[in-house]
Amino acid sequence: MFNWYQRYAEAILSVLPAKRLLALDALRGLTITAMILVNNPGSWSHVYSPLLHAQWHGWTVTDLIFPFFIVIVGMSLQLSLQRQNNSGNIAVIKYAAVRSIKLFALGLFLALFYYNFRDPAYNYIEQKLLTLRWLGVLQRIGLVYFFTVLIVLYCGTRGRIGWLIGLCALYLAGMLYLPYQDAQGNQFRGLLEFGNSFAAWLDHVVLGASHVYYRSATPFAFDPEGLWSTLPAISSCLAGVLMAQYLQSERTLVQKIRGLLLFGVVAVWLAELWHMGLPINKSLWTPSFVLLSSGYCAIALAVCLWLCDVKRWRLWSAPFVVFGANAILFFMFAGVAARILMMISVGDTSLHGWLFSTVYQPLFGDYNGSLAFALSFLLLSYLLMHWCYKRGYIFKV
């Protein structure tokens, strides 16, 4: 069995360019795999707590997944811009703008890709098109990517650090000191509550209560990938840029790993201390959350570097390389497939609900059955991603 897997993994890794940073590919694959795993349980009523987001302040392992991806975007950006340094800034900006628009459009497509066939009174135009959620995961990646490109092109290391800190400071100043009011004229300032913060007010006023994720939040509907929290999300991406710069330095590999570990441990420690004054909160993307998630991402990257490039234990990474190579295609496929499972009717329920209640729940129980459903979804996704990888089809935006 091991010999088969060894041959299989070596075949996957052999097509990677010699100078490719395998640790980063593996971390990207691990991150997108975790993202799809937590997004597709058999039943949201039966999910182990580490696979759920924190209810509000605080964090779980699941809360680290999306910021990991944002940090990795920053690392990849720095490495790719080094290869494009002869293209000129205007050409790079145009390329980044097109990529950002495509990512934003793909996010809107996923938001619109649903129809409730089980409800004869369902009105797609009123209940989906006219209540389109403007922002989301892919939209945030697109916005963060574009503005990070601008900063990286026109600022050196000190400027990038300055922007990272400055964006967090600007965000925090708005959250703590800018006044806002609800429809009844009640004045607020400095709140970090669910549905009551400057970020929530801005989403409610600019995007509209019908076009955000938390539409029933009071007094302000808001989006966890909202407008104001995009500022510290750019800081997360800049943290990835700086990590990639550090990896490009003249230090030895062991020194780089030690440096990443030191930064990661100190960042997590400081974030947890800061949590007592400024809560760690993913939905608000607070600066303490930026520090925590960037620190853990640095630790994870250090571990991957140690495994792949120091110990030379590389075979484990092969499946994650497959997922990571087509991360956007994987995300899009998972989103479309999950929606199709919900749209297809089986009796008075969906195909998703029928599969869980008649196959996975009887076989494995409530929580294990829900997890087994998510793992099965991953396995089927892997078969498609492997087919694409084997044929050299990489979906790029």
Rank of each mutant, 00 (worst) to 15 (best):
L284F: 07
W316M: 09
W313S: 15
S294W: 02
W285M: 03
G324W: 00
F320I: 11
S294Y: 05
L270V: 13
W269Y: 15
V265E: 03
I257N: 05
L247K: 00
E250S: 15
Q255K: 11
L247E: 01
A271H: 05
M332P: 12
S293G: 10
P279Y: 08
A267Y: 02
A271Y: 06
I328T: 12
V265D: 03
L253F: 10
N281R: 13
L329W: 00
L291N: 11
A302D: 10
Y296P: 03
L253M: 12
G324L: 01
S294N: 09
I299G: 06
A300S: 14
V322P: 00
M276G: 14
V303G: 09
E250F: 06
W285V: 05
E250W: 04
L262D: 11
R314F: 08
M243L: 15
I257G: 07
S293Y: 08
M276Y: 15
V268Q: 08
G324R: 00
P279S: 12
A300L: 14
T252P: 13
V321F: 02
Q255R: 09
F289Y: 10
A325N: 04
R251A: 11
H275R: 11
P319E: 05
A318V: 07
G259E: 10
L278I: 11
V322L: 03
Y296M: 15
F289S: 03
L262K: 13
V290K: 01
W285D: 02
L305F: 07
L291M: 13
T286E: 04
F330D: 01
W269Q: 14
P319C: 04
K282D: 03
L315E: 06
G295W: 02
S288H: 03
S288Q: 07
K256L: 00
M276L: 15
I280N: 04
K311Y: 15
P319L: 07
W313D: 15
V266N: 04
K256N: 02
K256V: 00
S249Y: 00
L315N: 08
A325L: 05
S294A: 14
W316R: 09
L292P: 12
L305A: 05
V321H: 02
V290Y: 03
M332K: 06
L291C: 10
L301H: 03
A267C: 09
T252C: 11
I299T: 07
A302Y: 07
M332D: 08
M243W: 08
V310F: 07
S283Y: 13
E250Q: 15
S317M: 07
Y296H: 13
A271N: 09
A325T: 09
A300T: 05
I299M: 15
F263A: 09
I257A: 07
V268N: 05
I328P: 02
L262V: 13
R251H: 14
I257R: 03
N281E: 12
F263P: 10
G324V: 02
C308W: 01
F320S: 05
F331Q: 01
L305N: 07
W306G: 08
K256S: 00
F320W: 08
V254H: 13
M276C: 13
T252V: 09
F263Q: 09
R314H: 10
I299N: 09
L329G: 03
S294P: 07
W274S: 14
A267Q: 02
W306R: 13
A267F: 03
N326Y: 00
C308S: 14
G264N: 06
K282F: 04
L307T: 12
W316P: 05
W274A: 14
F333R: 00
A318M: 06
W269A: 15
